[in-house]
Design a protein around this nucleic acid. Structure first.
Length: 426
RNA sequence: GCGAGCAUAGCUCAGUUGGUUAGAGCGCCUGACUGUGGAUCAGGAGGUCACGGGUUCAAGCCCCGUUGCUCGCCCCA
């Protein structure tokens, strides 16, 4: 049998899988709560294509970043290079520009929910096809109020999901005015200590010096403590921006930890960077990551646009949602219709159709089973009620409604059945 | 890209120092019960022991390789 591609997964009704992050009921909950939370803050949904020109990501996320090297890229039949999207900020900014949204008077607040693709080695909480929920605030303003409100919204979102054991990490990574000088100072300081650092630190000194700050090797810690921090090198504009951002978080009572070593992996980030981490996720514990990217639009050849946003991995959210928030029974049928005899089946189709028109979820036994077997199927589907229709019922116009939990049976007409089931819902 | 662990029925797992025809629980099918599910009882189906090679009189078990899954490194959501 042909199996699924490595690093992908099937999302199934919970009764077919014990893996929490593969249960559709959990996914539907996360998506529903996200849409509702974002709606309250004035965000609108956008869907961009899954494939884009490779150039969009090479310029957007940076050609030398890991994300870019992990892309699924191929040559289309006409010779054009296209890629499965590894993230959705660059596509969203592309769409913003391509559809002239910059002509809007105010901020454009967008959110997306969709699959992304990166060819990494799969592990817990990291897949080759993974889903992200993200938001982007685009416009001419870089007010820290935008950032604080987005984070406030995130906390509302997480609270509604019942995810409470989280930590907010924030940092400012500077801008074009102050970051270059900091990076060269950092590189200089690392070089002096290079012989004392571990192998991967030496590697990162070459590829991404900011990452050296993040090393977890014990023997490196004492040397890392001596390295300069970006927070000491921020220009006035970045420093003011960061303190205003913090003031607005304080005002909202949102706790945070300043993490001077927090860096984003993609080239387009500047100034505010943040991350929300969760427990019980294993090594991949970042639930949400985001930041400011004021230069991105111009890198892509568009108008100057300021932007702030985040992305969150749905798999990781789903794994973090506690059992108590989930209703695994959302899909259970309200009514199972069992028929006695082939003639009554034809009759039952009409009854079922009218009950469905009234809004009730109905499964009819299409297999012509004996009553005993039909009820067994109703039981395994966890139907709330069964409806038994045979010759006697057709004659009288009243059908036997059986409560599958108590076994209690009553003879009811169609309108009474509708009333009973609707009443039960309240 | 690098490292480690695991792979036996649909699912969760036993399987002794290598020894006859590979087991259990759950699930599935049939019946006890011709218009009444769940509980009980009786019976049944279902296996290339991941794949390929090797050692041996003999391999689910030992050795090598491959593939897959899982976890970690890197990096990230």
């Amino acid at each position: 049998m042909i199996s699924r591609v490595k690093g992908t997964q099937d999302i199934l009704p919970a009764r077919f899988t014990a893996k929490p992050d593969a249960q559709i009921e959990r996914w539907l909950l996360v998506e529903r709560v996200a849409r509702e939370a974002f709606r309250r803050y004035g965000f609108e949904e956008i869907r961009t294509p899954i494939i884009e020109r490779t150039e969009l990501f090479e310029r957007g996320v940076g050609a030398e970043t890991d994300v870019n090297k992990e892309m699924y890229t191929f040559e289309d039949r006409d010779g054009e290079m296209v890629s499965l999207r590894p993230e959705s900020t660059a596509p969203t900014v592309r769409a913003y520009s391509e559809h002239g949204m910059f002509n809007q008077a105010g901020l454009v607040k967008l959110f997306y929910i969709g699959p992304q693709f990166r060819r990494e080695r799969p592990q817990k909480g990291r897949y080759r096809q993974f889903w992200q929920i993200g938001v982007e605030v685009l416009g001419q303003s870089d007010e820290p109020a935008i950032e604080a409100e987005v984070i406030e919204m995130l906390y509302w979102f997480l609270m509604e999901l019942g995810i409470s054991d989280t930590e907010l990490l924030i940092n400012s990574i500077g801008d074009g005015a102050c970051r270059p000088a900091y990076i060269s100072a950092l590189r200089e300081a690392i070089r002096e200590r290079l012989p004392n650092l571990c192998g991967s630190c030496r590697q990162r000194y070459e590829t991404n010096p900011l990452r050296v700050l993040d090393c977890k090797v014990e023997s490196c810690q004492v040397h890392l403590a001596e390295l300069p921090l970006i927070s000491d090198s921020l220009c006035d504009a970045c420093g003011n921006h960061f303190s205003e951002f913090r003031r607005l978080l304080d005002q909202r009572g949102i706790a945070y930890k300043i993490e001077p070593r927090l860096v984003r992996g993609l080239d387009y980030y500047m100034r505010t960077a943040f991350e929300i981490t969760g427990s019980s996720l294993g090594a991949q514990n970042t639930l949400i990551g985001g930041g400011r990217y004021d230069g991105l639009s111009e890198i892509l050849g568009g108008q100057p646009v300021k932007g702030f946003g985040f992305a969150s991995g749905i798999e990781r959210l789903v794994m973090s949602v506690p059992e108590s928030t989930i209703n695994l029974g959302v899909n259970r049928p309200e009514l199972f219709v069992a028929c006695v005899g082939a003639d009554s089946r034809d009759y039952a189709f009409g009854v079922a159709r009218r009950l469905r028109a009234a809004g009730i979820s109905v499964i009819v036994d299409l297999e012509g089973r004996k009553l005993k077997k039909a009820l067994a199927v109703a039981n395994s589907l966890d139907a709330q009620y069964s409806l038994i229709i045979g010759e006697d019922e057709i004659k009288s116009g009243s059908y036997v409604l059986r409560d599958m939990k108590t076994g209690e049976q009553t003879s009811l007409r169609e309108s009474e059945i509708i009333d009973t089931l609707k009443y039960r819902r309240l």
